[in-house]
């Protein structure tokens, strides 16, 4: 796919990402911090929904979990965008990248619906499993992107 994204190359941030010795690895590390916060708190909330540690109050857990996961998500989006800009022309034509973005969108919808539900039932458990599997696959796809 030939998309004229080369104009991004002249953007100062892209120049800094490419030519500053420290910026790119720093951004990569922060991307992982973001993923850690997001996935870590998602796993805790989903496991609780699946019936692990029922004595923990779910609404208290989800208040903390939601805050941490949203912060982690924001950090991952910010750093992810910086990496995307550096490879925009390659990534926009990559099926793997598009699958990753669509999956993230679906998982956000899933999480929103999940947090609007007022009780834990069979459906919330299914959604918790979708969330666990989905976010794991997102991480896998992201890692895979570096290898193709």
């Amino acid at each position: 796919m030939d998309v004229p994204l080369n104009f991004l190359n002249d953007f100062w941030l892209v120049q800094a990402m490419k030519y500053s010795l420290w910026l790119y690895p720093t951004v990569e590390s922060l991307h992982i911090c973001g993923i850690g916060m997001l996935f870590g708190s998602v796993v805790l909330m989903d496991l609780r929904l699946l019936g692990v540690c029922p004595h923990i109050d779910f609404s208290a857990l989800s208040r903390l979990g939601l805050t941490v996961s949203l912060f982690g998500f924001a950090l991952a989006v910010l750093t992810g965008s910086m990496m995307f800009m550096t490879h925009a022309a390659d990534l926009i034509g990559s099926r793997l990248f598009l699958i990753k973005m669509c999956l993230i969108f679906l998982l956000l919808v899933n999480a929103t619906v999940l947090h609007m539900r007022s009780e834990i039932n069979a459906m919330t458990k299914v959604q918790a499993i979708v969330s666990l599997v989905g976010w794991s696959v997102v991480i896998g796809l992201g890692r895979w992107l570096a290898y193709v």
Partner: peptide
């Protein structure tokens, strides 16, 4: 399920 997820993560890359 959790173990399955961990395996997903290891296998994909």
């Amino acid at each position: 399920y959790f173990i399955f997820l961990l395996l997903c993560n290891i296998c994909l890359p």
